[in-house]
Amino acid sequence: MNLETPIAVAIHDLTVAYNHKPVLWDIDLEIPEGVLMAIVGPNGAGKSTLIKSILGIQKPLAGSVLIYDQPFSKQRKKVAYVPQKGSVDWDFPTTALDVVLMGTYGSLGWFKRPGLNEKKAALEALEQMGMLDFRDRQISELSGGQQQRIFLARALVQQAEIYFMDEPLQGVDATTEKAIIKILKLLSSKGKTVVVVHHDLQTVPEYFDWVTFLNVKKIATGPVKHIFNDDNLTKTYGINYKVSLQTK
């Protein structure tokens, strides 16, 4: 990472509160272009809230977020979002292909329906996630891992520059985890910026090259090689954390 690398996401003084308690406090964070970043922290640390605030789903009390030097509302087409799997009703009457097609809605604009080009893009994204055979499957008939892959395919269709993913590896089996990580690394190798809320500390050094420690406040951010250590883990989780670092 040299000094010339542009900043994809710049967050200044971001503070978010739900009721009386601040969920995020004075976050200053710069995410350089092209990193594959994990956000780690204990439950209630504000990891999902951070992503939702960047994407304008959650209104902050104070602070600003810039995507390539502009507010998010002007940069929507550069950004794709993968929500937590549990945030939607999977018994909704629709098929896998239909959900992936939703990824084209943003670029289509009002009134227009997805056409042949959109369908082709959606099928390609399904194939990339190894889900082509399931395109006509009702989404409730998919396994948890397959549902997660559908969500990822929907984000891929958006052809974005920055991807925000809220726990994409939550509750998926080993095959799906591998498939997802493969795609994340592929995106990263194409220079895309990928930001992932992640829970499994053991896999951070293997999967990611950048990491942000979060617990209401930002504890640390930087390359995994330099800052993924016991000191920061202890500061973030409040207990003496020991992980054996397998630096690559």
């Binding site: 939702k52 994407l55 304008g56 789903i57 509302s73 929507r76 950004v79 979002y81 929500p83 945030s87 939607v88 009703d89 909704f92 629709t94 959900v99 939703m102 809605y105 943003g106 929907r154």
Partner: peptide
Amino acid sequence: ILLFDIEYAKTIG
């Protein structure tokens, strides 16, 4: 999309 996934709908504007 509003019915299926309202938060995602917000992010696409």
